[in-house]
Nucleic acid binder design. Sequence first.
DNA 1: CAGATTTGACCTAG
DNA 2: CTAGGTCAAATCTG
Length: 379
Amino acid sequence: MHVLAAHPAAAPPLAFLAAAGGVLDHHRYSTKELTPPTTTTMDSNALRQIEEGFRLARELMEELPAAQNEPAYLADRCHGIAQAYVAAIRMLHPPANPPTHFGGSSQHDRVIPQLDLLRPFLSAPSAPSSSSTAFPHNLGRHQLLAADPSSFVVNASPVVAGTREGGERMTIMVPTQATAGNADQPPDDGYTWRKYGQKDILGSRYPRSYYRCTHKNYYGCEAKKKMQRLDDDPFTYEVTYCGNHTCLTSTTPLLTLPAAGPATAASTAANMLSNSPTGGSAAVLAAASQDLFMAAAAEHSAPALSTAIQLGISWMPSALVGSSAGEGSSAQVNVPAASGRDTAEYPVMDLADAMFNSTSSGGSSMDAIFPAHHDRRDS
DNA sequence: CAGATTTGACCTAG
DNA sequence: CTAGGTCAAATCTG
C-alpha cells in the first residue's frame, strides 16, 4: 500500500503548530489523500481503545486551563491517555506478530517507561513568558517537543539579518538534554541534517557547525541551520535556522507502508515507539506518539481524523505551551504564503521519519522513491 | 559500499 | 584583509 503524499513546501510540522498556540489550518492540512480506512479490518477493540484515547485527550484539553498548575494530575491524565493507546498498540500489533519493517523485535515493554519521559514536560513550570515569542516555522517538531519548554527560548523573531543571502533567519536557544547521555547533541528537531562545515568563531569558545538538509539533493531543499554552544552556557545551543524546508522529509514523503496486516499505519507508528533508534528519547517518543495519533486517525474515519488532528497534535504540545495559556496562545506561527507546493494537501501520516531516521535498511530507496528529483550533484 | 562527518582550502561581503 | 560561510576530498561508519 502506498501513501502518496503531495506535500507543502514549507509547512511547519503539525506538532509545532500546536505547540505554538494550537493554530491549525484544517484547509491546509486536508485529509483527502489519506489512505482510505475501508480496506482495513481493524480490531474493534483496538478502535475502541483509540477512541478512548481520543476521548481522554479531549477531556484533558478541556481541563487544561484549570489544571495547568497541577502537574501531577496532568501527568496522571496523560498516563491514562497513553495507556489507552498502548493498549491499542498491543491489539494492533501484538508481539507475536513482529514487525517486518523498522527491523526489529517487538519491544513494547519499552513504551510505557518511555511515556514517563513526558512527565517533565507536564511539570515544567511555565512556558516562555514573552508575549512576543515567535517560533521559526521551519523548525522541526521534535525540537520543541524535546526541549524543556521552560528553557526553550526563541532568541529572535524572524529577521532578515545581515547574512550574505538575506532571507529568513531565526535563532533559538535549545538546551541539551541532560538525560540524553550524549550531551554534545541538542535535541533532535525532526529534520535530518547533514553537516557540511565547522568553523571556529572569533571570540567564541566553541566552534560553529553548519548543517544543510540531508535531502537537498533530492528536493533542492535549501534549509540550513547553524549550531553553536553558548560561551557562558555550554549546555545550551544557539541554533539558527535559515531557509525553509522544501523537502518531504519531516512531514511525509511518499513511502511504502508495511505491506501486510490490518494495522498498517498505526503499527508503523507503534514501531516507531518500540524501535526508536535513539531509544529513550522523549523527542522520538513524542513524535511517535503524534504519529500514532495520525496513523490511528488515518485508519479510522474522516470525522475521527479531524478529531485526531485536533487532539493528536494538541494535547502533548499544549503542555509545552505551558501555563501562560493566554500569552502562549498569542504566539503566532508565520505559515509561509501559500504557493505551489505550499497549497498541496497535507498528509497526516508522518512516517517519513521512520524511513529517513529510523531505518538503516533503506539503502538506495531514495532512488526508487524520488527518481524524478534525483539531481544530486555531490557526494 | 553508500552516506555521513571531518577538516583544510577556498570564496566573498564588509 | 578578515571573519564567516561553503566546498570537496579524505575519512569514518554502519
